[in-house]
Nucleic acid binder design. Structure first.
Lengths: 222, 222
DNA sequence: CACATCCTTACGGGAAACCGTAAAGAGCCA
DNA sequence: TGGCTCTTTACGGTTTCCCGTAAGGATGTG
């Protein structure tokens, strides 16, 4: 089993349980950081001491508070950690369940496993850690495996996301057209934008723009 | 200390820690439910057995999964529980930090304490439980105490939520007015509804209905 | 009772969304 | 080059939203 593991998790109510699980897996050195910045410091320090961590278990979202932090999310933390120690194994333990988010964690950040926080997540987390240690393959909690294969959302492109984001910011059609013209996004005629929004409304079976944004928010698209 | 306590929390990673904390407070009977429906059943069963719970510790948001549930949130659970056992003490342990949400928990649901999940929440939770047992006063984690005193906040009531939900379902003003008339919700004039939506837009600094729903979704109001 | 105040509802005009149609432009191919 | 298709854009007409004003109704108070 891994010798030295770092847990990056802000909630004490969760980290206590995770550390417990790690000790049950016979991990000898278990450390914990409540802030991303602290986690990165620990990783760097361990490297300098020639006693690097074998594994990082990280949450994705961290509460903001009075403290000023450079790194504010697990994404940023993992990216920063990989820069100083590319070979480290990483497991993400998060509430996130949007397929395109998880997909990008594997593809862009090269994480080794993703476990969704849920009703039976600690056994899954243990299994994932064991799996990463044993064979290094990409591990994903069961309930999520199918969502990644869901092709229905593939058609939605960055342009559509941009459009939905603009709407959800309260912009009206003409504002969006102007904004797109200024930022070089194409097509940018207000009529084209209108048509594209209409396609989205048909696709998502939305009655109107309000309904559309409600649906997009539910799907985590924006 | 309380004798019999029920914990309603879906994440195993959190409930384990909470139960641990309860046993450290010398609570003799500690039960746990992962679904709101199960929690209500346990409360009812305990009442029938003439061994009711003294305290309910509940999360607010519960993940939805394959299971069909009547109650889908801590709000609904607490409301249902209070109907069958009005005198039960309730502590909410949640990530929620929007003042108007917490305010309504105290005012509309009559909870006894609110503890925000965070970096040092377990000690706070313990203190809150002790406080509720000792003197029954309204308990609030420190960092949140000041936000509740903010008088500028309008009360977001169930009526507003109903309104926002209707909008997010794609209904237009006249539909909502008709729907409210049919279901006996008051006020139900389309003009009044329009005015109320306008108040919400001012409060949440929304440019239009689309923007308003985007904000409401972000805040988890609907 | 008169008066003030608050809430609900009605109405009207202008802005934006909604929806169909058609013109202008780009790319492809014989 | 001319014909074809697809995309982008423009343009009206209708509906809904948006916002101000004001009438009607309930309640409270001196």
């Amino acid at each position: 089993m891994f010798n030295k593991v770092l847990v990056a998790e802000d909630f004490d109510s969760i980290s206590i349980t995770v550390e417990q699980a790690l000790s049950e897996l016979s991990v000898s050195e278990i450390h914990h950081a409540k802030y991303c910045d602290d986690a990165l410091l620990k990783i760097k320090k361990a490297l300098l001491d020639a006693a690097p961590y074998d594994l990082l278990i990280s949450d994705l979202s961290f509460k903001t508070d009075h403290r000023e932090n450079q790194l504010t999310s697990g994404d940023e933390l993992i990216a920063a950690v990989k820069k100083v120690q590319p070979a480290i194994k990483t497991v993400v333990f998060s509430i996130e369940d949007k397929s395109f988010r998880i997909k990008s964690l594997f593809n862009n950040l090269g994480i080794n496993a993703f476990v969704a926080k849920g009703r039976n997540s600690i056994p899954e987390l243990k299994k994932a850690i064991q799996g990463v240690f044993d064979n290094d393959s990409k591990i994903l909690s069961k309930e999520l495996a199918h969502t990644l294969r869901d092709k229905s959302l593939i058609e939605i492109e960055t342009y559509d996301i941009l459009l939905l984001k603009s709407l959800s910011r309260g912009l009206i059609l003409d504002d969006i057209a102007l904004d797109f013209k200024n930022t070089g996004v194409f097509p940018n005629g207000s009529s084209s934008i209108e048509k594209r929004i209409n396609k989205l409304k048909i696709f998502f079976k939305a009655n109107n723009n309000v309904h559309l944004i409600a649906i997009a928010k539910d799907l985590g698209l924006v």
